[in-house]
Design a protein around this nucleic acid. Structure first.
Lengths: 107, 107
DNA sequence: GGCATGTGCTAACTTTTCTTTGCATGTGCC
DNA sequence: GGCACATGCAAAGAAAAGTTAGCACATGCC
């Protein structure tokens, strides 16, 4: 199920200090964007970009909720995952890597 | 022993299709630069750049040798590794992440 | 010598990624 | 209304990474 392209995407997503910190912060408990940005000491727009990438890679999930006092808030939480990186695992993943020229379609 | 910075470096190194292919190719048996470039269908300078990054991350090792017919050749082989990626592992790694401002020195 | 093979380097261009700035929306409360 | 808090988006600039092109060197063989 985990194709080489997906692995590549996850690796590219994890290869960033901000995103690792976001994952670490959310690892304990879920949080909403503004608060998380304050805790990490980064701007909200920047955090949003990274959260979007993390979500696109399937590492976190965002849920829009409305707080008691009516504020629209977006909570993010970590999706459990476990990826084992070994030369053999990579060898297997590479076999399902998409080549620039040939798309997933036929021909 | 594996600091967050090292993990980050390895992740950044692995997050590239060429480098994954190089690892996969070397996973079976070691090879020298020119031949590897032909097999992967990429230019030699490009391969060298990627090999250097892989070596800098500690994933492969290069050895200069002289073939029977006197040609100077550089063989690369994969260094065995096993990295487990989970939210908990990342949380632990982040604790040893270097912050831009504060270097490994004190103050 | 000329050609095929191997190595190395790096300047320069292209592409991608990261980050900031700025503006839009909405709610509750004094 | 005005302020504090929440969300969203996107243009534009800055920084990093990837890639190519071109040069250098050496050896063996016809």
């Amino acid at each position: 199920m985990t194709s080489g392209d997906e692995l590549l995407k996850v690796l590219a997503t994890l290869a960033n200090p901000h995103r690792l910190r976001v994952l670490a912060a959310l690892s304990g408990e879920r949080d909403y964007v503004s608060r998380l940005a304050r805790e990490l000491g980064i701007s909200r727009p920047l955090l949003q970009v990274h959260l979007r990438k993390l979500e696109a890679a399937g590492l976190v999930t965002g849920r829009a909720e409305v707080s008691e006092d009516g504020k629209a808030m977006k909570f993010y939480e970590v999706n459990p995952f476990r990826i084992e990186l070994t030369p053999q695992a990579i060898e297997a993943a590479v076999r399902t890597l998409t080549v620039p020229g040939e798309e997933k379609g036929d021909r």
